[in-house]
Design a binder for these strands. Structure first.
Lengths: 273, 273
DNA sequence: TTGCTCCTCACGTCACGTGAGGTGGC
DNA sequence: TTGCTCCTCACGTCACGTGAGGTGGC
């Protein structure tokens, strides 16, 4: 091949400029300069104008860096890997591959969560709680009460995830009983009554007899490992906001009816809306 | 429910601390503070000690932020989305979902590329070039010459991706001819000969007659849209490094033999190793 | 009392992005 | 000559991480 006369400098002829290298490999010019600065990619020779001129090996080096970087490998580690030689690199490839494998399924999970953003409740709350809230609605409980329950359970679950779930099982079992559903709705309506309303007496009677029947068997009493004052305070402060004089009176009456049933009283607390 | 005496402040009882919120939702405490600073998450009320106290709505808000953030949505856009209300959010969910869909296949591609890091050549170079290099090796071309060819083609492809591919098709067609393969190997060996070696004359004869035969048909002449001086300079500078006095003499001889076949001479240039 | 959590600055980090001001190539 | 590419600082950005120095909760 005969040398042809042209304007290119002999040593830099055919060599790529930083822009050509960047476009071919698919990275930005600034990224390449950054890799030089970090020592990831060796500085190439300059041409007469002070421009960097790259040969074919730089293309392959940069492709390696790009591939590892896109795989989520930090630049500092890429530096080590490339310096350590192929045997070290081969070992890490397995590890990096496994990390990528894990990444494959994550976007799928996120997609479902994103889709559920609009009615966030169903997607973000534990399924047991979602089911419980649906059961409350099905039982005719008004939406405001459902929201109050929801928020109470969220707080409870945040602080005592394990215990709250066990507790929830009992609540759902209660709710399966038509008698309890009637009582629950009754409490909801009673909130607006006069504290002197005679119907409160009836409700308290009904609740007391329900509790006695329900917790006849000791095994049915939920095992609370949480210190009671904390839970009581949590619940009272939360539901306290919506407590009406009628409901306070109702709880007093129910408590009286349950005198002599110490264990039952404990079981009642979380149950009363 | 009766208020029980306890140490918790009435207004903050049951409310979550920033640490509890962070652990339950699965983000760092610092991330939550960052979201407050960015205005993404409203600052909650403080308790008597100046600690932030969070209610259930904050749990759901933070879960929404976390979900969107993990999906790759920038915090600035999350802010807009949450402020815009559910109808705007629903519209964006489709778009974000599509972006995630695209992300699902990427790690799989990257996994294959990572696996190929060790013998980078096969994974990073265009398959046509990899095939060509394999054909060279199969033809008995020595590894050094293969590397020189490889680097030359990489540079060529980086600068003229389309043209280089067309050109490569012709080179591979040449290499399919046993005659050309012999010639190619001959050039490889001739590099070490004395420029006065009489065998050069024979080789030049053989190459000239091959070129005349090969490019008898005008359609077979590759259509070079690249300005010749540039390409010639590119190739000469690249292969010039390895050019021996014998090869220079060989090229001169071949050129002489081809006098009067102007078009053939052009076809020869890229063909000579 | 000790260790853990919380608080507020405020600087650091990672992988570049983005001008700022200037020169060379076609 | 004009527009495009290249050069070197050097500060900006994004989403937090990480002490620094101090106080409150169990």
């Amino acid at each position: 091949v005969t040398r042809q006369p042209d304007k290119l400098e002999p040593r830099s002829a055919g060599m790529l400029t930083i822009g050509q290298l960047a476009e071919y490999v698919g990275v930005t010019v600034r990224a390449i300069r950054h890799y030089h600065q970090r020592g990831l990619l060796g500085e190439p020779a300059r041409d007469a104008s002070g421009y960097r001129r790259y040969g074919a090996p730089a293309v392959l080096d940069l492709l390696r860096i790009k591939t590892l970087s896109e795989a989520g490998v930090p630049l500092a580690r890429i530096d080590e890997l490339l310096a350590a030689g192929p045997e070290q690199l081969a070992a890490s490839v397995t590890e990096i591959g496994a990390a990528l494998q894990r990444q494959i399924r994550e976007p799928q999970l996120r997609r479902r969560r994103i889709a559920g953003l609009v009615d966030g409740e169903r997607m973000f709350l534990p399924p047991e709680l979602v089911a419980f809230l649906d059961e409350l609605r099905a039982a005719g409980v008004n939406e405001h009460t459902v929201q109050v329950e929801r928020d109470g359970w969220i707080l409870l679950m945040a602080r005592y995830p394990q215990q709250a779930l066990e507790w929830l099982v009992h609540k759902r079992a209660d709710l399966a009983d038509p008698e309890f559903r009637r009582l629950y709705r009754g409490y909801g309506e009673a909130a607006d009554w006069d504290p002197a309303d005679p119907r409160l007496e009836q409700l308290a009677d009904a609740m007391a007899s329900y509790v006695v029947r329900r917790y006849r068997n000791e095994d049915d009493i939920p095992d609370m490992k949480i210190d009671d004052p904390t839970v009581a305070a949590l619940l009272s402060s939360h539901f306290g906001d919506t407590t009406s004089p009628a409901l306070e009176r109702l709880n007093e009456l129910t408590k009286e009816k349950l005198q002599g049933h110490q264990s039952h009283q404990q079981a009642l607390d979380p149950g009363s809306p």
